[in-house]
Design a protein around this nucleic acid. Sequence first.
DNA 1: TTCCGATGTGGACGATGCTTAGATAGCACC
DNA 2: GGTGCTATCTAAGCATCGTCCACATCGGAA
Lengths: 209, 209
Amino acid sequence: MTTTHAALAAAKPYHHGDLRRALLEAAEAILEREGPVGLSLRAVAREAGVSPAAPYHHFKDKDELLLAVGRNGFARLKQALAEAALSTDDKAARLPAIGLAYVEFAQAHPATYEVMYSCARRVDAMPDHDDEAANGFSLVKDAISESAGGQMSDIDVNLAAIAAWCAVHGLAEMRGFAEFESLKEALGGEEAFLRGVLGHFFVARSRHH
Amino acid sequence: MTTTHAALAAAKPYHHGDLRRALLEAAEAILEREGPVGLSLRAVAREAGVSPAAPYHHFKDKDELLLAVGRNGFARLKQALAEAALSTDDKAARLPAIGLAYVEFAQAHPATYEVMYSCARRVDAMPDHDDEAANGFSLVKDAISESAGGQMSDIDVNLAAIAAWCAVHGLAEMRGFAEFESLKEALGGEEAFLRGVLGHFFVARSRHH
DNA sequence: TTCCGATGTGGACGATGCTTAGATAGCACC
DNA sequence: GGTGCTATCTAAGCATCGTCCACATCGGAA
């Protein structure tokens, strides 16, 4: 009485079908649940219900798995920024809205955010990260260019966009520092604090030139 | 024929004398040589010429060792910033000088810088990091306050200082991103690029309010 | 001098990243 | 419909890692 293919597939097929995607989902599940510390290759394989060696047929390294996770994260970040950019018609308000969305993304998915940048920091580790369509960089440049009414040179737009990106990244990573707590209270909450710091970037920039 | 104490001490004393310091130096040596990836507790013990269990009499954890390394790094960062602040009498030039020194420190010691912030990101992991005398935060606030001629409110000075810190940190971490390369060439080098991005923070800020 | 606490060693345990050899299954081809 | 070929998965094993344990050694106070 040999088991049919269908029954095997329902129970536990020897071949998973789409392990690569399953591994990525497992990795992100672990990341949200236990943080980057608990994210071992073996744990990912366990989560996906597969042997510890199976992932090596889909990713060369643990690094390559992390890299794929990071790319997914950047894609979702870009999506969140795009939604924020479309949320307002006021061109002056667009850049701060993007900035706030950025920081809130990092706050909502801190573990994913950490993996994203621990990948991105390694030079040449993020192949399509210089593709402007893939990340949200062009969104920022458009918002800056628009808010300046097209008066800025291309180089200045680029510099301003990089500056903005650096600023929100720094804010995203240092948001939780203890030395900021008293100031947060004085301003009446996290949101006001974020807007206050972001204002020192974006208000100032819109008056520049 | 028992060996004398002096001979033993010269050869390989059972008790090291100042292992804690030796471990920290070994850790930093490994960090500079192999980066954060090669920094295992066992490697640190090896480098110090001691058994793998010895560090546990001086640090509760590997994390606690990393934490001490991070604190040392922040201390040296503060020192570098202080030197930069004293390098000029022009009050308007002080803040950009500090910013440049910050980024150059991160560039000169990337592994140490990474450890510093991977410690600092963990809330409550950096006990004396909210001590303004220990980090360089007060330096930044002074420079900002001075450049504004004492016109800014205390809260604004704090916000501006945080903004500057976030910006410089972001720049330090993203300095090497591939998508910035073409812009660097257009501006004629790394230094010009850094000054250009920093200018979008500091020039703008000095006109703010 | 004696003895205790601080500091070191050696060995062990479980977990991890990764490799190799072999089992299994989908799929083109005859 | 059988027959291989290749991609995929498992089992077992290696070196390393963080951590703990029992024990060795030393320095200094009683």
